[in-house]
Simulated assay, not measured.
Amino acid sequence: MTGPAVVLVGPPGAGKTTVGALLAERLGLSLRDTDADVERMAGKPIPEIFFQDGERRFRQLEAEAVRSALGGHDGVLSLGGGAVLDDGTRALLSGLPVAFLDVALSDAVKRVGLDAPRPLLAVNPRQQWRTLMEARRPLYLQVARAVVGTQDRTPAEVAAAVLDALELRTA
């Protein structure tokens, strides 16, 4: 096994899970989402991990989930929005087919609503999202082999753009 065929990174609302499912279908592979892995490991939803155990514990679980997925999944992998904050994760992503799904705030709001149960966006969500992106954008760009804008594109169009950008053939 050489690792995932595609790794998707980006902020909340970028469409990583939706686009990942389309990519998996087109490539004839499975989809794995590290946020779902974290919830399984903890036995509770991410907001509860944040509120009961703290962000530090969540980030530890997230890094563990990413390491496991990168070492044991050869399909499409969707990483949580903050996974790139971990130095070890960024090192593991080096050389892999990583696509950064770049989304504008207005589109992120339409897709997930900023009133959704997202712990880091709980207070003043628009400003928090902007602050997150200022900190994370350089990290997304650091790990990405391709940057795919999502503005004015359907999930199917984004998936096609990822396949083109990473020069992948469909099944």
Rank of each mutant, 00 (worst) to 15 (best):
V38C: 03
E39V: 08
E39W: 12
E39T: 11
R40C: 04
R40P: 09
M41Q: 14
M41T: 13
A42R: 09
A42F: 12
A42H: 13
G43R: 09
G43T: 10
G43H: 11
G43L: 11
K44F: 00
P45C: 10
I46V: 15
I46T: 08
I46Y: 02
I46W: 02
P47V: 06
P47N: 13
P47L: 12
I49P: 02
I49W: 00
F51P: 00
Q52D: 15
Q52R: 15
Q52Y: 12
D53F: 08
D53L: 14
G54V: 07
R57G: 11
R57S: 15
R57M: 13
F58P: 00
Q60P: 05
L61C: 05
L61I: 05
E62W: 01
E62Y: 08
A63P: 06
A63V: 00
E64Q: 15
E64M: 11
A65G: 01
A65C: 02
A65T: 02
V66G: 01
R67V: 07
R67S: 12
R67H: 14
A69C: 12
L70Q: 11
L70G: 05
L70D: 04
L70H: 07
G71C: 06
G71W: 05
G71N: 10
G72I: 03
G72C: 07
H73L: 07
D74R: 11
D74Y: 04
G75W: 01
V76S: 04
V76A: 03
L77M: 10
L77P: 00
S78D: 04
L79V: 02
L79F: 05
L79D: 02
G80C: 00
G81Q: 00
A83L: 00
A83H: 03
A83G: 07
A83N: 00
V84S: 00
L85T: 09
L85F: 11
L85R: 01
D86Q: 06
D87Y: 09
G88M: 05
G88F: 06
G88A: 11
G88I: 08
G88P: 10
T89C: 10
T89W: 01
T89E: 00
R90N: 09
R90G: 13
R90V: 13
R90D: 08
A91D: 13
L92Y: 01
L92I: 08
L93T: 02
L93W: 04
L93E: 03
S94T: 15
S94Q: 15
